[in-house]
């Protein structure tokens, strides 16, 4: 039992990360209907910015500057991509974000370099044993996993308060519900886009910090976006809780599958398990765990 829980916890770390990336997707998708392929590239870009800036300045300043960079990025995307393409089909915007993704990957590596950088924010990394009173021998976890979970928890709480309690939050929810109606009450769509892209950029930075601290900042971060897709299918494209729970299920599921049923498949399950789970899920509940029911109106 203790070992099972250890594996589960290990899976949750990956899950938190998937959840953060999926969360970035959901925010943008809800507010602008854009499926943002560049989310993974944004995670890489944010992490690279932070890790390189830290060579020049103290950590808190580097963090602030990185946030600033993501806000500037949001402004640029709104001006150069979203505004000219307003009212175009979703697929066109999707393709535009593929372009953004390649550009950001290339641009980031050009200005920041393309090696593997160690990100050390001084977060604790040593393993600890918890739940000793519950299981014999307790459960061995990495302190970092716990810290990552706490960071993600704080981020999600802050976002929830922001969305539920503030005026901008209400405006954001209005835009997510109905673009036309939101415009008719005078909500400026462009400002809202900048705000959600900035928020997504900050979420990307947090994801980059978690991932980069665990495995180093490197190009492969950008590919984590591909794992967010099954998470979104599981959680629903428009649900924030769905992104989080979907992320945890996929993360834990693939680790457990790898460890417990992997050997009989010859390993490597981790690479495709998430997609298979999503596929099965798609057959049963196409709207995702928390997504709104899809009702065809005729």
């Amino acid at each position: 039992m203790g070992f099972f829980i250890e594996v589960l916890f290990g899976g949750f770390l990956a899950g938190v990360l998937y959840a953060l990336v999926a969360l970035g997707f959901v925010l943008i998708f809800k507010a602008s209907g854009v499926f943002n392929f560049a989310q993974g590239a944004m995670v890489l870009f944010a992490a690279l910015s932070l890790v390189r800036l830290m060579e020049w300045m103290p950590i808190p300043i580097a963090l602030l500057v990185s946030v600033g960079i993501m806000i500037v990025f949001a402004l640029v995307v709104e001006r150069l991509v979203l505004r000219p393409l307003v009212n175009q089909e979703g697929i066109i915007l999707f393709m535009a974000t593929i372009g953004v993704s390649y550009f950001v990957d290339g641009f980031g590596q050009t200005i920041w370099g393309s090696e593997i950088y160690t990100l050390d924010l001084g977060l604790p990394k040593e393993p600890v044993i918890i739940l000793e009173s519950v299981f014999e021998g307790g459960v061995l976890v990495n302190k970092f996993d716990l810290v990552a979970a706490v960071i993600a928890g704080i981020l999600v709480t802050v976002l929830a308060v922001f969305f539920q309690k503030t005026r901008i939050g209400r405006a954001l929810r209005a835009v997510a519900d109905d673009h036309q109606a939101a415009q008719s009450v005078g909500i400026p769509l462009r400002d809202i886009w900048v705000i959600v892209w900035s928020t997504s950029g900050i979420v990307a930075l947090v994801a980059g910090i978690v991932w980069g601290s665990a495995l180093g900042v490197q190009f492969s971060i950008s590919l984590v976006a591909l794992k967010a897709l099954p998470v979104l299918i599981l959680g629903g494209f428009t649900s924030v809780p769905g992104a989080i729970i979907g992320g945890l299920i996929i993360g834990a599921g693939e680790k457990l599958a790898e460890v417990f049923i992997g050997p009989s498949f010859g390993g490597g399950i981790e690479n495709w398990f998430a997609y298979m789970l999503a596929l099965l899920f798609l057959l049963v509940r196409p709207q995702g765990l928390f997504g709104e029911r899809i009702i065809e109106r005729v």
């Binding site: 005026r167 209400r170 036309q180 005078g186 705000i195």
Partner: peptide, 29 residues
């Protein structure tokens, strides 16, 4: 009908007042 379907009646009506509220959404937050 183009309402904000996920919000309550009160929140829908409050959203209608957005422009009556002080400018600069961001600092208000």
């Amino acid at each position: 009908i183009a309402l904000f379907r996920g919000m309550s009646t009160l929140d829908n009506i409050m959203t209608g007042r957005l422009l009556k509220m002080k400018r600069n959404l961001f600092w208000q937050a």
